[in-house]
Design a protein around this nucleic acid. Structure first.
Lengths: 127, 127
DNA sequence: TCCTTCTATAAGTGAACACTTATGTTATGC
DNA sequence: GCATAACATAAGTGTTCACTTATAGAAGGA
């Protein structure tokens, strides 16, 4: 029974700017520059500030990076979000728990089967 | 599409002491004093500090209080935890989503039926 | 009544943190 | 080679925040 699965997951999500970054990444992979632009459309913030926030999210396992030329493509990492959901699961309604466990099992089975089929290549999560 | 359903939910969960308080409340209702004692068994902390943490959790909708004599009985409030899970749900695996929705629906039905039965006495109205 | 218990609030303080500007690093183009 | 673009890191600073001690308030027992 870990205090909270991944270290720093909830600390990372505690900041509104970082939550907004997660929301911006929810539809799919985004270069760091696009995240900066999107944030600046709403609030005044500089590029280094965003970069530092992304570092926190990275270290918490909430996002992962992929280099493409000079750009850094960020995407949501399931490790962190799953850890957060796992911690919160204990407060779920008692009656919902077995059902969620079932849902998780079924989903895992489907996902594994899908990954075992090397056909659809670069699969993007649809929003 | 709210930034995050309940105001301050993730900010509240960002502190490890407050997460520990939530864990201590997970099994069920606890008086504030018991929470202080339980925390002090692990780390050095004073009663006012715990009281302030509980206030933050209260204002975030993560816990609710019930007065019984001179004691204050704290319990997990579904409003806050559900809000946190709702926000995190958008990062869930695509295939798991419909199943979770089904689970939620079924659980709600069961819960409502249970609440419609005025038998177990001290039923608190959920927000 | 007074006294004790349980909990919340007030006030002050040190540390963590999110921000800024300035600079470094890496890849591409001329 | 040099210049530019995209992003990360360094260094410094103000504010937030979690903590402390001290005190207030409410309920129960003598």
């Amino acid at each position: 029974m870990p205090d909270s699965a991944q270290p720093g997951v909830f600390e990372a999500l505690g900041d509104p700017v970082r939550r907004r970054l997660m929301e911006l990444l929810a539809p799919g992979e985004q270069p760091a520059g696009a995240l900066v632009t999107a944030l600046q459309a709403r609030v005044h913030i500089t590029q280094p500030a965003v970069s530092q926030h992304l570092k926190v999210l990275r270290e918490a396992g909430l996002v992962r990076v992929r280099a493409e030329g000079t750009r850094r493509l960020y995407a949501v990492d399931d490790a962190g979000t799953a850890a957060a959901r796992a911690w919160l699961a204990r407060f779920e309604d008692t009656f919902a728990q077995p059902l969620d466990a079932l849902a998780t099992e079924l989903a895992r089975g489907r996902r594994d089967r899908r990954r075992a089929t090397p056909e659809d290549g670069t699969a993007e999560a649809a929003g």
